[in-house]
Simulated assay, not measured.
Amino acid sequence: MTKKRVLTTSLLALVAIAVGCTAWIVKAQSYAFTEQRVDIPVTNALADGGSTPDAHTGGSLHAVLTVPKSGGGKRPLVVLVHGDGAANASRDDAYQAVREAFADAGYATLSWDKAGVNGAPGDWLAQSLADRGAEVGAALDWAHTRPEIDADNMGAWGVSQAGWVLPAIADRRDDLRFLVIVGGAVNWLRQGEFNLSAELRADGASDETRRAAFDRRTRNVAMFERGATYDEYVASGVDAEPMSRARYGFVMRNFRADATGDLDRIAVPTLLLLGTADRNVDVVETERVYRDHVPPNLLTVRTFDGASHSLTRDDIEYRPDDLGVFFRAVFAPRSIFAPGYLDALTSFAVDQKTPRA
């Protein structure tokens, strides 16, 4: 075979591989729903449930509504609620498989860019957890106006920090028919202490490093408790790299959060999903408190071995720079989640449907 023919054959093989990979990626990244950008007003939302107009949601939610490709008619709805941090509506596509799991059960989903993210108005760091609840309330109100939504069948899924948001709003909304809580904590301060300990352990920190880290934490909490100003916090030198002024304000508004009282008032079916490899939340405490405070006939708990805080596999969550993890996320994005997690969402959602008259 001539050099020219060898080169031509090699090039054709590379083209075939590229075409095959592209087709695989397109298929892997295709989901069983359609997406639509929508704008949701929140000017009438009340942050505390009834007395003070909410000033921190930015006036509107820049949201994405997904609708299953199969079937038709009015769709039940699941509102997706973010955890901590800046997040766009899809959490950089991390929600796509979750949206699809609910679409497989026949549900539409609704999620939004956090205030100040992706061009949305407002600033999420200026919010309280009650403000976050006001956004959920505004989303549910908006859903009642949509002809494609079955407002008699609406629930909410939330991860991490949403564990403080959703139980509180569920107590005030009789149109929220079920909750799904992923990696929810109970008490803000205890959660922070657990997270610090878990991260130090994962890093193999020495006893001296651990003592210094917990000393800094104790001093920080003391400043929160006495209401220290940001300038006082910076001047204290407790953190070599201080929080930003905005982050400090966010923590000061929310560090007393504790879900226990709200769990006592949950009156809807609730699915609690936990991962044994969660470094953010003490899942043993979370399960115990939920079982102590949510009626057993309303609570379902599923724990996934080797799953992280967001129910991804721990061998993926904690190796973000691994090339194999990158290829898995591109070629098989659903496989990054703990086995059985997505099926659990679909199954639970199907069970919560109320037949239309």
Rank of each mutant, 00 (worst) to 15 (best):
D203Q: 14
G158Q: 04
A185H: 03
N220D: 12
T209I: 02
W157M: 11
R226K: 14
G204A: 01
L176E: 08
G183F: 06
G158Y: 11
G192L: 03
L189K: 15
R226M: 08
F224T: 00
A205Y: 14
T218D: 15
T209S: 13
R219P: 00
D174Y: 08
A202K: 13
E199H: 03
R210E: 07
G184D: 12
R173W: 01
L196S: 08
R219E: 04
G183E: 03
R201F: 01
Q161N: 06
F178N: 02
L179P: 01
S206C: 06
R172S: 15
D171V: 05
S197T: 10
N220R: 11
G183R: 07
W164C: 08
A170Y: 09
A162M: 14
A185E: 09
I169C: 10
V182Y: 07
L179Q: 00
F214N: 05
Q161Y: 11
P167E: 04
I181F: 03
A162Y: 04
W157S: 09
V182A: 02
A205S: 13
I169Q: 04
R217F: 08
V221Q: 02
A168Q: 09
D174R: 15
V182M: 02
A202T: 08
Q191A: 11
E225P: 00
T218K: 14
S197P: 00
F224L: 15
R210M: 04
A212G: 06
V182S: 02
E193W: 14
L196A: 02
R219C: 13
A162H: 13
I169T: 10
A213F: 09
M223L: 15
N187V: 12
R219N: 06
N220C: 11
R190F: 13
F194A: 06
G183K: 11
D215W: 06
W157V: 05
A222T: 01
D215K: 15
A222G: 09
G192E: 03
L189Q: 15
Q191Y: 07
G184E: 07
E208G: 03
R190N: 12
D215F: 04
V165M: 10
R172W: 04
P167R: 09
G183L: 11
N220G: 13
R177P: 02
A222M: 04
L196I: 11
N195R: 07
R172F: 10
W188A: 04
A202Y: 11
L176I: 13
L179T: 00
A198N: 15
V186G: 02
A213C: 14
W157D: 05
G183C: 15
E208K: 05
T209L: 05
G192F: 00
W188Q: 00
R211Y: 05
R217H: 09
W164L: 08
